[in-house]
Structures are given as structure tokens and as C-alpha cells.
Design a protein around this nucleic acid. Structure first.
Length: 252
DNA sequence: AAGCCTAGCAACCGCATGTAT
DNA sequence: CATACATGCGGTTGCTAGGCT
């Protein structure tokens, strides 16, 4: 499938570029802008982000695009048998709590799981149900499944707390303040240098729309989904595979 | 070859929840 | 405590590609 067709439900295919329209399918250019911006500064405020990233999109749309498609830790492609079975099992336990399911399936998003369920697994579940008539209702917790012992389970309690709002910053951020998105490989000295100094991004960041800096090779940064971490002069950054956090240095 | 149908998937929408003021 | 704002979640829509007739 063409990954970025320009189309609009209202005006028809390719009548108006998405970058002008600000809705519809994302163009390669928009993806690059968003990806580069978040890698450089993090998603400190989704509502404001598109303005600074130079995108004609609403924050919600940017968030969705990042979460469901651009995040470097995402798996794309077909599901393994184990994943299918796990989704079926989780649906049995959780019902339509897609985000909760996504937590147990590293690299998969709630949207993706939901789509996969509706397009494929629902049928499989139905055929299974025919074979085994005594089917539990979704959300009904079975005794054998009541205790989650999934090795990939991680709750917010497992993470260090997100940063407090700093006295100098007027913007609160739940996850990452002007953070460079960090994964392994991308925390090399050269990588950090290519972004510029961490001690000075804030001023331009608040006042200038972001322009994509193509001087670094993004594919190198996106090639790894392994957890990683690095330090700036003031904050400690770490990436747990799905979220980026930072902590004031004194916390460590 | 052309038209129709359908599966798959990206994206949108509205509501719920969490957090700051 | 009330309100506003930001974010997250789940349901739904609509487009494309590919198979079928």
C-alpha cells in the first residue's frame, strides 16, 4: 500500500495537500518533521507541539501519529502465533481494554491490536467459541488468568517518577521536557553532538518553529528498540522501550 | 478488462480521566 | 472546591488494495 496517499474524505483524492488541509493521511514530510521534532525535544505538550514543529495539525493528531506509527520502538508487520494467542487471552480477561493489552504486547499499539482484533481475531474467537460452547464473557476474569504474571508487565509504579515542574519552566510535562528521544545506539556521543548542546536548546525551542535538521541519520537512531539512557548536564534521560523520562540530576 | 466487494488499516471523533491553577 | 486544560482511550469512519465475478 502506498504509505502516504494524499486524500480527503470531503474533497476527494489529492484535491488539497494534507500539509495545507491539516487533516487526512500524513505525508512523508510531515512524518519527518514530527519525528525529528520529538526526537529532539520530546512531546512536552501535544497541543503546542505542532505549532513549534511547523505542522498544520492538531496536537491530538500528532500524538496519534507518533504513538501509532512513528515511535521507534514499534513493531510493524504480521503477528506471531504467540501474539495472537496472547491477544485472545487478554481479550478474554480484559474485554476491549486495548491499551491495557498493548502494555502486554511490546511494540504493538492499542489501535493496531484493536484493528487486528476486528479484522481477524474476532472471527477466530468466534470459531473457537463454536468449538467450545462454554465461553466466558469478555471481562469475566477466569481464576487461572486472574493473576497477571506476564514477564513484560510494567506499571507506572515500576518507573521513577516523572519530573516535577521546574521553577523556571511554565510548561508542565508529564513525560519528557525538551528531551532528546533516547534509545540505545542513539545515545552515543556523536549522536548527542549532532543534536547540538543540551544546555542551550530551550530558548530557540520556545520561540522558533522547529525545522527538520537532516544532518543526522535518523535511521541510525531508529534502528534500535532496546532500552537506553544517557545524561545531559542537568537531566538524566532514560528510555524504557515505550516512554522517555528524565530526572533532575540531584535525584540520582 | 471493468466493476463490485471486502479486508485491512490509518485517522478522526467524542468522551473520560488526570492535572494544574 | 471548581474550573480549565491536556492527555488518553475506545468506537467509528472512510480510503486503498486486492480478490472475485
Amino acid at each position: 500500500m502506498n504509505s502516504h496517499p494524499i486524500r480527503t474524505p470531503t474533497f476527494g483524492f489529492q484535491t488539497m495537500p494534507a500539509v495545507i488541509r491539516g487533516t487526512g493521511a500524513w505525508s512523508k514530510e510531515e512524518d519527518d518533521k514530527l519525528k525529528a521534532y520529538i526526537q529532539r525535544y520530546g512531546h512536552w505538550n501535544w497541543r503546542q507541539l505542532p505549532k513549534f514543529a511547523g505542522l498544520s495539525r492538531c496536537g491530538k493528531s500528532c500524538r496519534l501519529r507518533w504513538m501509532n506509527y512513528l515511535r521507534p520502538d514499534l513493531k510493524h508487520g504480521s503477528y506471531s502465533k504467540q501474539e495472537e494467542d496472547l491477544i485472545l487471552k487478554l481479550y478474554d480477561e480484559l474485554g476491549t481494554k486495548w491499551s491495557a493489552m498493548a502494555e502486554k504486547l511490546p511494540g504493538r499499539t492499542d489501535n493496531e491490536i484493536k484493528n487486528y482484533w476486528h479484522s481477524y481475531l474476532k472471527k477466530r474467537a468466534k470459531s473457537n467459541a463454536k468449538q467450545t460452547p462454554a465461553v466466558r464473557q469478555p471481562n469475566e476474569i477466569s481464576p487461572e488468568n486472574a493473576v497477571s504474571d506476564s514477564p513484560v508487565e510494567q506499571t507506572s509504579e515500576n518507573y521513577p517518577l516523572p519530573p516535577e515542574q521546574t521553577s523556571s519552566g511554565s510548561v508542565s510535562s508529564t513525560y519528557c521536557d525538551y528531551a532528546v528521544f533516547s534509545g540505545v545506539n542513539w545515545a552515543t556521543e556523536e549522536s548527542i553532538d549532532s543534536f547540538g548542546s543540551f544546555s542551550q536548546p530551550v530558548e530557540n525551542f520556545w520561540t522558533e518553529p522547529f525545522s527538520v535538521d537532516t544532518s543526522f541519520d535518523q535511521s541510525n537512531f531508529l534502528s534500535s528498540s532496546v532500552e537506553g539512557e544517557f545524561m545531559s548536564s542537568h537531566y538524566y534521560y532514560y528510555y524504557d522501550g515505550s516512554e522517555l523520562f528524565n530526572q533532575p540530576m540531584q535525584e540520582f
